[in-house]
Amino acid sequence: MRSAVEFYGCIDREMEAHLVRMRTLLAAMPDNGDDLWSCHAATRGFRDHLGLPYEVKDGFFARKGTCHSWLTAGVGDRRVAIDILPMGAHGGPIVADIGRFAPWHDLYIEAQDHYAGKADKFLEEAALFREALLVAEKRLA
C-alpha cells in the first residue's frame, strides 16, 4: 500500500533511493557513546556524506523550545520535510508533506536565526556523524 505522500507524488525515485540508503546506514551505525546523535548532526552529516540535494533547516518541532533540524525538498509542486531523527519517535527518516494545506505544515517551524550562534557546534557534530557513517559503510561492505 502506498502512503499519502507517495500517492500525491511527494516522493520520487531519487528520494526513495536516498531514504533506503539512509535507513540502511542508520541501522549499521555505531552508537555515540553515552550520548544520542543529534538531529543537527544527522541532517548535516547525511547531506554532506551522501551529497544529498536537500536543504538543512533548523528550527522547532511543534512549538518553540523543541529544537530540531530536518531536510527539505521540493518534488514537483510539493514541499516535504525529510526528518532523519523524528522527535519522540522510533525509526526514520520519515517524509512529511509540509505544504501550506498539509497537516504537518505547522509542526516544522523554521528559525534559522535562532541557531546562528550554534552553527560551528552543529558542523563539528556533523563531522563526527560522518565518521560514524564511514564505520557503517565499512560494516556494510
Rank of each mutant, 00 (worst) to 15 (best):
M1H: 03
M1S: 12
E6Y: 04
F7V: 15
F7Q: 13
F7I: 15
C10T: 01
D12N: 15
E14W: 12
E16R: 15
L19E: 09
V20L: 07
M22S: 00
T24C: 07
L25C: 15
L26A: 10
L26W: 09
A27N: 07
A27P: 05
M29W: 08
D31C: 05
G33K: 14
D34K: 01
L36R: 15
L36W: 15
L36I: 07
L36A: 12
W37V: 00
C39S: 01
H40K: 10
A42V: 08
A42F: 07
A42H: 05
A42L: 04
T43N: 04
T43Q: 00
R44P: 05
F46K: 00
F46V: 01
R47M: 08
D48H: 09
H49N: 00
L52G: 04
L52I: 09
L52K: 00
Y54R: 02
Y54T: 03
Y54C: 09
E55S: 12
D58Q: 05
D58C: 11
G59A: 00
F61Q: 01
F61Y: 04
F61W: 05
A62L: 03
A62P: 01
K64M: 14
G65P: 03
T66I: 15
T66V: 14
L71T: 08
L71M: 05
T72C: 13
T72L: 13
G74N: 11
V75L: 09
D77T: 06
R78N: 11
R78L: 06
A81P: 04
I82E: 03
I82R: 02
D83V: 02
D83W: 02
L85A: 01
P86S: 01
M87S: 12
M87W: 00
M87T: 06
G88Y: 13
A89E: 02
H90T: 15
H90C: 10
G92Q: 10
G92R: 12
P93K: 06
P93N: 12
P93Y: 06
V95M: 05
D97C: 01
I98C: 08
G99K: 06
R100T: 07
R100H: 12
R100D: 13
F101L: 14
A102N: 08
P103R: 12
H105G: 13
H105Q: 15
D106K: 13
I109M: 15
E110I: 15
E110T: 15
Q112C: 04
D113C: 06
D113W: 10
Y115E: 01
A116L: 12
A116C: 11
K118F: 06
D120G: 11
K121Q: 12
K121H: 07
A126G: 06
A126E: 06
A126L: 08
A126I: 02
E131P: 03
E131N: 11
A132E: 00
L133R: 03
L134Y: 05
A136Y: 01
E137C: 09
R139N: 11
R139L: 11
L140A: 10
